[in-house]
Design a protein around this nucleic acid. Structure first.
Lengths: 223, 223
DNA sequence: GTCTATATCCTGATAGAC
DNA sequence: GTCTATCAGGATATAGAC
């Protein structure tokens, strides 16, 4: 049995936590992790500064919480699409698998969710304070890897090692695509539109599928 | 005519400047731009804190100087290889062009006894917050773009816009490949070796060439 | 050109009252 | 759980002696 004052306290607690997470997500996405201070976050969330260290133990754990919360629905959507593909009875194509893998991130972005910081975080994996990424990757991607890995291996007829090199290269392209349009704008002289998510996703899938097939071919020819 | 004390002053000046650049390069690539303080840089360089703001006007201009200094020899090497390819009389293949474009960075990394942290620096430059990249790109890549762009367009028979999307994706793969092995190690369960530069470059070229061709095909079919 | 010393501000984190 | 007040230290930048 839950007492009224406990309910109220619980509600207040989760409300404060939510407000912090919401503000942090927005600010992290906009300015990056290092450039966003806890003061700025608590100010925008209209909560007390000390609340961050109460609800999360440190800034770093707040970052982890923000990233995982943001990533969770995207990963669930990925697995949902993969489930649909695999219940069809026919083996999914590489393009379909890539659409299941890349699509949800672009969907989220189209829906206004700022996801650009996570790819940046990926690219900084080796240096982030306290090996953040090393601790984050298993929690964030183990299930995805376990489900998509075998599916890609079947579709490409490629061994695990070569596939993982390919996925590494593919993730780099995706991250760069999501991390802002500065480079693309410079390359194209302002002609290409980085906010054209449909065009970006379509090109990413086409490019990646072809690249993965090339790695698989080499593997099959050699082995 | 140069007086002796002027010569000495000039020498001292350039020595201090060099020491700052060397220390900054090492620390930036190891910890990132934001996380590296001027105190740490001047401490490691064994020069005075104020020297940074004297020789460079601010931390940001120091960052630009560090990046451009290390990029310059790589870009000259890229153009040197491209020159050799284009004097042969036969049109270079995509693979050859990609080798001219990607190779020098891996060369620099292989010769990494002195500059082993530098590739991380480059990879990091793509993901740092702020307008750093916007200001850096024209100075760093205009000549490269002007020379490699037409060569790729001829080899691929693709229009400018589609090529630039492709180069954007390719640069993402390259940056991710150079930015450290945390992701690759996780994906492959520690099996793939990110320090296998030959294997990484070979796969990057194979993967990228195939991806670019796929984008060009689509373009040709559509148009 | 180089240095010491310091100004001014911001950072993450915490102790302790309520 | 939330607050105030504060700690201990780091940030960039600059003034002025030498």
């Amino acid at each position: 049995m839950i007492e009224a004052h406990q309910e109220q306290a619980l509600h207040a607690a989760s409300q404060t936590k939510q407000r912090i997470l919401d503000a942090a997500e927005r600010l992290f996405s906009q300015h990056g992790f290092a450039a966003t201070s806890l003061r700025r976050i608590t100010s925008e969330a209209q909560v007390n500064l000390a609340a961050v260290n109460y609800h999360f133990r440190s800034k770093e754990e707040l970052i982890q919480a923000v990233v995982l919360r943001k990533l969770d629905p995207i990963n669930r959507r990925r697995l949902e699409i993969l489930d649909q593909l695999e219940t069809g009875g026919v083996e999914p194509t590489i393009e379909e698998l890539l659409h299941a893998f890349f699509g949800p991130i672009f969907e989220a972005r189209r829906a206004g969710v700022q996801v650009c910081e996570f790819p940046k975080l990926l690219a900084r994996a080796h240096t982030e304070p306290g090996d953040l990424m090393t601790r984050l990757l298993p929690a964030a991607f183990s299930e995805i890897l376990a489900r998509f890995g075998p599916a890609f291996r079947r579709a490409l007829k490629v061994d695990q090692l070569e596939l993982m090199w390919g996925m590494h290269l593919a993730i780099g392209s995706m991250a760069h695509l999501l991390s802002g349009g500065a480079v693309l704008a410079f390359l194209s002289g302002g002609e290409a539109d980085a906010n054209d998510y449909d065009g970006a996703l379509r090109r990413l899938i086409r490019y990646t599928a072809s690249g993965l097939r090339a790695l698989a071919e080499k593997e099959n020819v050699a082995g």
